[in-house]
Design a protein around this nucleic acid. Structure first.
Lengths: 238, 238
DNA sequence: TCGGTGATGGCACTCAGTACCCTCGATTAT
DNA sequence: ATAATCGAGGGTACTGAGTGCCATCACCGA
């Protein structure tokens, strides 16, 4: 387990300039707005050259989301190390909680950023692409775990979208409140809906394990046969 | 029911210039790529002034999605006119099918656009914001319909995300294939997963109709598959 | 001390997007 | 009929994001 993703090498050398840029950017963004702030304004406040800004951030929007690259990498390694026999839905929920932890770890920054992204269309769009990468990462994990199922890829995409939606629902509610209350509990509650619906021991009726010998398959009349077989197969052969 | 959203007034006057720009843009995009094409290239091929391009499209990316504004408006009116007593999940699925119809109504255009958006990050991001508007529209409908439930807003967001994910799963598969096969059926099948999970008469409390609707198959773990299939088949198809 | 490497600054350039103003044609009021 | 108005489009010039290229400087191994 490496450190919590200090993307530089030896701990304290790299962050200086990058952090200075982020700090300067947020100072200007919050006092005069995103679109009213030019990159030249940021670099002159940070006391660095203009060219250096684009060495650290690919665009002016990216400086608003400086921590997501590392978090995405953390999520990726987390899922790679996940137990191949555990409930994949629970695993992607835990992966989503990594993102939450990042937001909750810096409430004032997160709330400030939220207010900013809410107002600036460009930032909203950029946030969508950030969220999209998380969602694709979760979906990728689920796809490999559901590879045996005929509808595995579809299930993976749907569940990943549901997890992200539930996570964002609770997160945004917390951000809207200004960072008051227990986000962790709120996200747990929201994700519970997804786990109850899609996780192991939910849905098409593996009736818990009251016996360990019996499997119950529930299907609506008219369900295509292949779908039934799939469900039974998944339950029996796992 | 107005016409299928001819956003101009008297049918044939408006489209000329807008369509000419779209056509010119796609010709250049497909032959030399999106980023290698400037707005000046487009307007000179279309034979119009540069300023006119930005009168019709707010950005260079927007010309790639010329039909989504109208489709979003159609979706909005469709949901406004939806039966307040019908299954809201089925309604948002039908709303999603409006988008599908737009894609399916012009396969070659849709496939060309897909190949483009797959390669160009800027276009992928722009597509995300387009999809996001659809999702928020669906979620808004579900929120009003689920207003009575304590977790209504959460359910609305999760279901909307699931519908969009299922729709896009089938749509993208079709686009990847170059437009071969029956998209409608594929989307129906994908959305069925969502309806089965979240729609009226699914999951949580639909024990009231368990008699004529549901079949329960009980088997011991280790039962040969053919025996299970036999039993289920007998129960389902009698 | 020299050469290499990586981080940074500076300059110039392209191009998206916008503000402002012009032209032209059609409609309408006087 | 002429003038005023208005809407669609063209043209010019400007801002600012993002990039390519090169110079500089610090550090480091030989």
């Amino acid at each position: 387990m490496s450190e919590v993703h200090e993307q530089g090498g030896t701990a304290a050398t790299r962050p200086t300039m990058r952090d200075a840029l982020v700090e300067a950017a947020f100072e200007l963004f919050s006092e005069r707005g995103f679109e009213q702030t030019t990159v030249d304004d940021i670099v002159s406040l940070a006391g660095v050259g203009r060219r250096s800004f684009f060495r650290y951030f690919p665009s002016k929007e990216a400086v608003v989301f400086p921590d997501h690259d590392g978090c995405l990498a953390d999520m990726t390694t987390f899922l790679e190390q996940a137990d191949p026999s555990g409930d994949p839905v629970a695993q992607v929920c835990d992966a989503a909680r990594l993102v939450l932890r990042m937001y909750a770890g810096n409430p004032s920054f997160s709330v400030g950023r939220y207010r900013l992204t809410k107002q600036v269309p460009n930032l909203r769009t950029h946030e969508l692409s950030v969220v999209w990468r998380y969602e694709r990462t979760l979906a990728g994990h689920l796809r490999t775990r559901y590879a045996a199922r005929a509808d595995g890829a579809l299930r993976a995409d749907v569940i990943a979208a549901a997890v992200v939606a539930a996570h964002n629902f609770a997160l945004r509610s917390w951000l809207r409140s200004g960072g008051e209350g227990d986000v962790g509990a709120a996200v747990d509650e929201a994700l519970q809906l997804v786990v109850d619906t899609w996780g192991d021991g939910a849905a098409e009726g593996r009736s818990e394990s009251q016996d360990e010998e019996v499997v119950v398959m529930v299907a609506r009349r008219g369900t295509p046969m292949w779908r039934v077989v799939q469900g039974v197969e998944a339950a029996l052969e796992q």
